[in-house]
Every structure is written in structure tokens, then in C-alpha cells.
């Protein structure tokens, strides 16, 4: 980690090029809505097994980047490559959103939580394992006759759900409707629902928004645990600096749709351009640091 951080500090402008084993590479991504240029020629990559953060002020285009990555928008220009450890690679800009989740195994959460409110917590986690269970149920045919194959697969799916519920302290609420959970628990549920789809890359859109400090710490522990003990890399958009600086291995800073800086948390925190654009240090401080 430290070697990479030093490399980033040395290279300053283009540290992403040094990524050794990128799981996700974004090249020249441009997204235009009519006359509005939401993302302008953005390139970065996310390292396998790390937590990469995309930060930037409001309206910088962070969520648009996510929507392009996960297929909800089709980018105007650019190439997004997802590389699996086994060598398979996927060009995400050409795939449908549900195929990105199913085949390229990129899962995401939403800025305004999107659960299935009228279904129980457990049902939410089982819907996330839809494709696995669908195969096990022989595309419904085996399932409708109640074959043992399907029952076994369902038991396994419930086990996986139970594992994540236990980890996030939601086991007691498993049979309650998702809408009955408090806000923080809904955030956690959305993350573990995404994890139940067994993604290789998990994209989190402002996971700490609206959380109190205790919940925020708990979230950090969960995200670190996912990085360290599961085969999942993380990409997150965040406003909350304590989350970003505390857990990110690599940070990309956006402003007005352009990348203004990238590197280790330490590097980004001290980059005068970032300070000027985002971190809200006094004007004269930014000025002495060489305003853009």
C-alpha cells in the first residue's frame, strides 16, 4: 500500500496508470445530456481488492459516473472495462444494466435507498440471489414440482442471507418488512442485499449519507470486512470525509465532470486543487497553494 501511495505522490497527475491489477478501467468517459456536459473525458481505474472512492462537490458528476458504470445511462463516449480475476473482461458501456449485474458481476446501491419495502428483509436478500436460484429451480420447472435440487439451493440462499444478517446485526429483523427498519438499518440492508448477489465489484452511492457517527463507524467496519474477507472490490461515492479518508485506498476527485486529482487519501488531502474545489479550506489558504 505504502509503495503505491508513494508512486501516486510522485506521479501526481496520472497515478492511475500505475495500477497493477485493475478490476475496473474507465477510459475517456464522456456523458452529455443535451447541452450539459456532465462528465468530461474522465479516466481512472480501480484496483482489485481495494476500496476506491470517487469524491467531489455537489453536481460534480459522481452519480452520473455510477449510472454509466452500471448501465443505467449509456455514455456518450468512452470505454469501461471490467476485468475478472480469471481473465474474462466485459465492456460495460455496451451491456444492459441487468447483464452488468448478472454477468460482469457489478452490484450497486442507490443514493436514495431502493429496497423492496413491502417484502421482508429476508425476501429482499433472496431476490438478490435471483439468478442463482432461477438456475437451481430449472427456470421454475423444477421448482414448481418441488424438486430437492431447488429446496437445497433455497436453503443455501437462506444461509447466505443469514450470514450477512448476522454480520450486520439484522438477524432479529429478518421477518419484518424492509420499510419498518430504521434508516441506518435500511442502508446496511441495501449493502448486504447487493453483497448477496455475490458481486466482484460493489458500487456504493453515498453509503454514509444520513448516518450518525456510530452508524458511520459501523459502516466502515462492514466495508473493510467486505474488502478483506470477501472477493469483492469496492467503489464508493462519498460526501462524508471521515468515511472516505478512513477507509479508501485510492481516491478520485471530480469537479464539474472533470478529474482534478487522484491518489492516496494523504495525497488528495494535501492537493491544493482539491482543497480549493472541495474540502472548504479558507480562500487565502487555497490561494497560497496555487489556485486553479
Amino acid at each position: 500500500m505504502s509503495a503505491r501511495a508513494q508512486a501516486a505522490t510522485a506521479a501526481r497527475s496520472e497515478p492511475a496508470a500505475l495500477a497493477a491489477d485493475p478490476i475496473l478501467t474507465v477510459e475517456h468517459l464522456t456523458m452529455r445530456f443535451g447541452g450539459l456536459l456532465a462528465i468530461d473525458d474522465l479516466s481512472f481505474s480501480a484496483e482489485r481488492g481495494q476500496i476506491t472512492a470517487v469524491i467531489g462537490p455537489n453536481g460534480a458528476g459522481k452519480t452520473t459516473v455510477f449510472n454509466c458504470l452500471t448501465g443505467f445511462y449509456k455514455p456518450t463516449e468512452g470505454m469501461i472495462t471490467m476485468r475478472h480475476a480469471d481473465g474474462a473482461s466485459f465492456l460495460l458501456e455496451r451491456m444492459d444494466d441487468f447483464r452488468i449485474a448478472r454477468s460482469a458481476r457489478v452490484a450497486r446501491t442507490f443514493q436514495n435507498i431502493r429496497l423492496f419495502p413491502g417484502m421482508t428483509v429476508l425476501e429482499n436478500l433472496l431476490v438478490a440471489q435471483h439468478n442463482t436460484l432461477m438456475r437451481a429451480s430449472g427456470y421454475t420447472l423444477a421448482g414448481i414440482f418441488g424438486l430437492a435440487v431447488y429446496r437445497k439451493a433455497e436453503r443455501k440462499a437462506v444461509e447466505r442471507a443469514r450470514y450477512w444478517l448476522d454480520k450486520t446485526g439484522l438477524l432479529e429483523r429478518a421477518d419484518d418488512p424492509a420499510s419498518d427498519l430504521p434508516y441506518g438499518a435500511q442502508r446496511r440492508l441495501e449493502i448486504i442485499r447487493a453483497m448477496c448477489s455475490q458481486p466482484l465489484l460493489l458500487c456504493l452511492d453515498e453509503p454514509a449519507a444520513g448516518l450518525n457517527p456510530a452508524e458511520s463507524d459501523e459502516l466502515n467496519r462492514l466495508l473493510r470486512d467486505i474488502r478483506d474477507h470477501h472477493d469483492t472490490s469496492l467503489l464508493l461515492i462519498e460526501h462524508d470525509m471521515s468515511v472516505v479518508m478512513g477507509i479508501s485506498d485510492f481516491i478520485v476527485v471530480l469537479d464539474y465532470g472533470e478529474k482534478i486529482s487522484s491518489g492516496s487519501p494523504h495525497f488528495v488531502r494535501n492537493d491544493p486543487k482539491v482543497i480549493a474545489a472541495y474540502l472548504g479550506i479558507d480562500d487565502e489558504d487555497a490561494g497560497t497553494g496555487g489556485a486553479p
Partner: peptide, 19 residues
């Protein structure tokens, strides 16, 4: 379950790989 999930939130369904 996918039918009911579709009724609850279609976008979330797509993000979970449901066609």
C-alpha cells in the same frame, strides 16, 4: 419473488441482475 420485487421497485430489480 421477482414479480413482487418488480412491483416494489423495478430499478432495484435491474441493479440486482433481474431481467
Amino acid at each position: 419473488r421477482a414479480w413482487e420485487a418488480l412491483r416494489e421497485d423495478e430499478i432495484a430489480c435491474r441493479s440486482l441482475g433481474i431481467n
